[in-house]
Structures are given as C-alpha cells and as structure tokens.
C-alpha cells in the first residue's frame, strides 16, 4: 500500500511542524477556554450548564475556525514539496502521484483529527469538572462531526495544493475558498437572481434551489448535522415544516448534509490530483 507509506511519512513529518503544534495548542486553549467561559457568560448556574448548550455555544467559533485549521494543514501538502524539491525525493521512490495525493489527504487528515480531538478532549475535561452533567455520547458525536467537517477542508486544502506548484498561490486559493464560504456563499443566490431577473432579493419565499445551494456550503452542512443529530433543536425542524408545508425536501436531511461534507473531502482532492498528474515537476 504505497499511499499508506506516504500517509505515515507525511503524518510523522507534519505532526512535528511547529505551526501545526502551535495551532493545536491555540485551539485547545480556545475550546477549553470556551468551555470554561461558558460557565460565566452562558449560564448563571454552572451546575445547570449542559453539554448541549455548550455545543451550541462552541458551534459558531468551530464553524469559522475549523475550516482555517483544515486549510492550513492542507495548503502546503503538495505545493510545499514541489516548492522545496522534496517531491523529487518522494517521487524518486516508487509512488504514483495518486499515492501522493491520497497519502497526503490521509496524513494531513490524521494530523487535523488528532489536533481537533486533543482540543475537544481538554474542553471535555473542563466540562466534566465544572458542569453538573456531562453527556459523553453527545460530546463524542459532536467531536466526530467536527472532525468530518475539518476533513472537508483538508480535502479542499490538499486539492488546491496539488493543483498549484507554489505555496503562495495555494495560500491565496485557500483564503479565497474560505472567503467564498464564509462571506459570499449566502449572497450568491441573490446575485444570480439579480443577474437573471434584474431584481435583488426574492421578495417572499426564496426558491427551493436556494436552500439546496445553501446546504452545499460545508459550513452550513456541518451546522445542519450538529443541529439535527446532536442538539436536536425542534425549532429548525418546525421552521422547515412550516416553510415546505410538511413536505421537507430530502436535501435538507442531515444525511444529505453528511454526504455534502464527504464530497468536499473527495472532489477537490480528486480535481487537484488531476491537475497534479498532468504537471511537470
């Protein structure tokens, strides 16, 4: 298994990177800090603080920060090796370029998984100590969904990295992608509508496809899986029931959202591979 050898080497290498270690420490402090902070600002009584409300509290920062972790872990994966020339050492050995991309996605995914789980584990310890109750199942489920979310951005990061020979271009691409998801995505249906119909805003109920489009953003897909499966907020469901008259489209189900996240792992990495396969090193 050639890709497994590449993945193991990549993990060994990346886990020793000061940048990634620093990132893990930072996010550990952030998650643990949030768990601690929540006992002051989220609720008046620490004993009454529940893990579900903590998850709700963590969801917003995680939605913004986890993509950054994933992209930072991925963007140098292939472009960095091409830039320094270590790719020649790597491909001088009998690995295919596909092995390299698959191995890189796996290696960096492992790094991000370790990094995220360490942060969440420390946050869990804080919660166990300070909170009146702690639901291990809910927190583990939340952590796993967050890992899948992180992997989507590792896939995007490695894909961009494989498609370009320079880390400068890769980092610009990574920030561009983040900007699109974070700031632009929600506006795109309105902009399309404006381009086609000349009117801004849908005036009344937005069309069904705009909900589908929104759900294709991995950040929204992640939030949807956590809301539906972990927090199980009745409000969201009620909102959709009302909107679609009891007949909620399939693409608003959490399974569809999970599939979206997995596609974000695979498709960008696959496209990046196709570009890398054609490139002269």
């Amino acid at each position: 298994m050639s890709w497994a050898v590449v993945a193991r080497k990549d993990f060994q290498d990346a886990i020793r990177s000061r940048g990634l270690i620093g990132m893990t420490v930072l996010f550990t402090l952030l998650y643990a800090g949030a768990a601690y902070l929540y006992t002051f600002i989220g609720t008046s009584d620490p004993q009454a603080a529940s893990i579900l409300s903590l998850i709700n509290f963590l969801l917003l920062p995680a939605t913004i920060l986890v993509p950054i972790v994933g992209l930072l872990a991925g963007y140098r994966a292939v472009a960095g090796e091409r830039e320094t020339g270590s790719i020649k050492l790597l491909l001088g050995l009998p690995h295919t370029r596909q092995d390299v991309v698959v191995g890189k996605v796996l290696g960096r995914s492992t790094v991000v998984t370790v990094s995220t789980l360490v942060g969440f584990a420390v946050a869990a310890v804080v919660a166990v100590v300070l909170y009146g109750s702690f639901s291990v199942g809910d927190f583990v489920f939340f952590s796993l969904l967050t890992v899948v979310f992180a992997l989507a951005f590792v896939g995007i990061g490695v894909g961009i990295s494989a498609a370009t020979g320079s880390t400068t271009k890769a980092v610009i691409g990574a920030f561009g992608v983040f900007g699109v998801f974070q700031f632009l995505w929600g506006q795109i249906p309105d902009l399309l509508n404006y381009a086609i119909n000349g009117s801004y805003g849908f005036g009344g109920q937005p069309p069904e496809w705009s909900f589908l489009f929104a759900r294709l953003n991995p950040q929204n897909a992640y939030r949807a899986t956590v809301n539906e499966w972990v927090v199980q907020s009745p409000l969201q469901e009620a909102f959709y029931q009302q909107l679609f008259g009891g007949d909620v489209p399939l693409f608003l189900s959490p399974w569809f959202a999970l599939a979206v996240l997995l596609l974000w792992v695979l498709v960008p990495a696959g496209l990046g591979y196709l570009a890398f396969e054609r490139a002269d090193l």
């Binding site: 080497k9 290498d13 020793r16 020339g85 020649k88 050492l89």
Partner: peptide, 11 residues
C-alpha cells in the same frame, strides 16, 4: 538520487 532535492528537515 535527484538534483536540487530537499529532505524532510523534521525527520
């Protein structure tokens, strides 16, 4: 043995 290669400094 390639030319202009780089090793993995952390390993």
């Amino acid at each position: 043995l390639p030319e202009g290669f780089e090793t993995y400094d952390r390993l």
